[in-house]
């Protein structure tokens, strides 16, 4: 019989995530998937889950869950207090949750997104090969609500020992290495210098679609409209207000604002954990 997980407290925004949907961008389907993929991968590894097991991604305020049978979980990613029926429990390592007990992943003490992985994975029906919630186009399960019941898969592997699990600390300063292009020529020659020398900060309006920034606006030489073109993950798109937006996993597949540069994908995991106000340094490389 399938083990069920009841959502006791859904938190500000908790979604089901895995590695997302690849190869459908030409149909207008974003990649989606966990924003901090290394954190998801580590949580799954600690449980002996398959790499494509779906997990829960929380936002700032965590979530609380109650399984109807005993399950093993890992809460990782952004550090947060973990409790089992109100008693402190381990963060960042496998934890046994007895049947009917409430696992609460609390508000983050740093970072943005905690991950709750469960042995066997969240077994909602996949859509286009992925169980991920895509907030831009609405594919996959809706964000969790209190009272939702999630099916779990059968635990596949044996949990690995938690020694030396390298959970990186959320960034105090976010460094985003980027390569200029494809539309750097839409900006003044000073714009790349501004981008890489000024301090930007993470805007509170950031979400799974993009990391919005506050800082000096980047000026364009060309004010015309860019015909819609394909957008990649990590694209630094500059809307008319001149404040760069770094596209994250739920980004639109095509867009009409010029992209001054593209941030390397490995740096985006830290971007997913950079809280509002975190200083950002864009570097060339």
């Amino acid at each position: 019989m399938t083990v069920k997980l009841t959502v006791v407290r859904s938190g500000a925004l908790t979604t089901v995530q895995d590695h997302g949907r690849r190869g459908h961008a030409h149909l207008g389907v974003p990649r989606s998937g966990a924003l901090d993929a290394p954190a998801m991968n580590l949580a799954n590894r600690l449980l002996g889950n398959a790499p494509d097991a779906a997990v829960l991604e929380t936002t700032l305020t965590g979530c609380a869950l109650r399984p109807d049978r005993g399950v093993t979980v890992v809460v990782g990613g952004a550090p947060c207090p973990v409790t089992l029926d109100g008693r402190p429990a381990a963060w960042g390592m496998p934890l046994r949750v007895p049947a009917g007990a409430v696992l609460d992943a609390g508000g983050v003490s740093a970072g943005v997104r905690s991950y709750v992985a469960v042995a066997g994975g969240i077994a909602v029906e996949p859509v286009l090969g992925s169980r991920a919630t895509d907030l831009l186009s609405g594919l996959g399960p809706a964000p969790l609500r209190d009272g939702d019941v999630l099916p779990l898969g059968a635990p596949a592997g044996r949990p690995t020992p938690p020694d030396a699990a390298p959970w990186p600390a959320p960034p105090a300063e976010l460094t985003l290495p980027l390569r200029l292009g494809p539309r750097a020529d839409w900006f003044t020659p000073a714009a790349p210098h501004t981008l890489t020398s000024a301090t930007y900060r993470v805007s509170q309006h950031s979400n799974r679609i993009g990391l919005r920034t506050e800082g000096p606006p980047l000026e364009r030489v060309s004010t015309g409209e860019l015909p819609s073109e394909g957008m990649v993950l990590g694209a630094v798109q500059v809307p008319p207000d001149g404040r760069p937006v770094v596209f994250l996993h739920d980004h639109p597949t095509t867009g009409g604002y010029p992209v001054i540069g593209v941030v390397a994908e490995p740096a985006l995991a830290a971007a997913a954990q950079a809280a509002a106000g975190t200083p950002i340094r864009f570097t060339l490389g």
């Binding site: 690849r22 190869g23 961008a25 015909p227 819609s228 073109e229 394909g230 095509t254």
Partner: peptide, 15 residues
Amino acid sequence: VEDIVPGARTVLLDG
């Protein structure tokens, strides 16, 4: 190539 994404006057080759 993971994604071939045409635009109005471009084609993106991603992955």
